[in-house]
Simulated assay, not measured.
Amino acid sequence: MACTALIVIDMLNTYAHEDADALVDSVRTCLPGVGEVLRRARAGDAPVIYVNDNFGRWRSHHGEILQAALDGKHAELVEPIAPDDDSLFVVKARHSAFFETPLAYLLGQLGAERVVLCGQVTEQCVLYSALDAYIRHLDVVVAADAVAHIDPDLAEAALRMMEHNMSADIRLSHEIAFNASAER
């Protein structure tokens, strides 16, 4: 049976990078949306998949990545949206959640034909992940109030590109359904 999977991109962040100061306020703004889409996915028994950078620690596993983020400068941005025991986890090295990761295979095993994207950064990792989902013939939904940006103008352009070039459904987190009869 086809399902919808939630993909949470790079929300486990240490905020120890050059763009962190520009990103933090946007993350604070999108946290309620991320929380809402997580609640809706879990209530609908949808797979929740965290896809995250590994901070260059190639021995990293999800516990180390989560702990590094919680030990970082802004644990308050990580704690409310931390993975639960049922969450799945994929480590990535580049911008796209799909690039050289097992995400496409995992989605196939889950029977996912539709993905909902949330996380950071809208104009980078979310955009590239949406493109890679689209070229894999997945229906793409982006929770517009659950994505954070560094550059607001580029983020707005990225959302328009996802909608127009990738047929992404851009909607607010409270409008996204995760059950089998969910509208596109």
Rank of each mutant, 00 (worst) to 15 (best):
L66I: 13
S167T: 11
V115E: 03
R94L: 08
A104D: 08
V140C: 03
D132Q: 07
E163P: 00
S173R: 04
P83M: 09
H174R: 15
A148M: 07
A93D: 11
L131G: 00
G72Y: 02
G108F: 10
L66T: 05
K92F: 00
V126S: 02
R57A: 14
V126T: 05
L172S: 15
L172H: 15
I81A: 01
S173Q: 09
L138V: 05
L138G: 03
T122G: 09
S173V: 06
H61W: 15
D145M: 07
L77A: 04
E79V: 14
L127G: 01
F99V: 04
Q124S: 15
E64T: 14
E100V: 07
A112F: 14
A158T: 03
L172A: 15
D85T: 07
D153S: 15
Y134G: 00
A157H: 09
L77M: 06
S173W: 13
L66R: 09
Q124M: 13
V91A: 12
F89W: 15
G72P: 03
V147T: 12
K73I: 05
L172I: 10
R59S: 14
V140S: 02
S96I: 06
E156H: 12
L88E: 06
L70N: 03
S87R: 01
A133V: 02
C118G: 06
D169P: 04
L70R: 10
A75H: 12
R94Q: 11
A148T: 07
W58N: 12
S87C: 13
V78S: 04
Q109D: 14
A157N: 06
H61T: 12
E64C: 08
E100D: 14
Y105S: 08
R136Q: 11
H149P: 09
H61Q: 13
F89M: 07
I81H: 00
D71V: 00
A133I: 00
H62L: 08
E79C: 06
L159M: 12
Q109V: 04
A82C: 08
V142R: 01
E100C: 09
A158C: 09
D85I: 06
V116P: 04
D169M: 14
L88T: 00
H61D: 15
D139F: 08
H137S: 13
M161S: 06
Q124L: 10
L138R: 01
L103T: 01
V141A: 06
D71N: 11
G111N: 05
A68G: 06
L70I: 04
S173Y: 13
D145Q: 10
V141M: 07
R94I: 02
D169I: 13
L66K: 07
H95A: 14
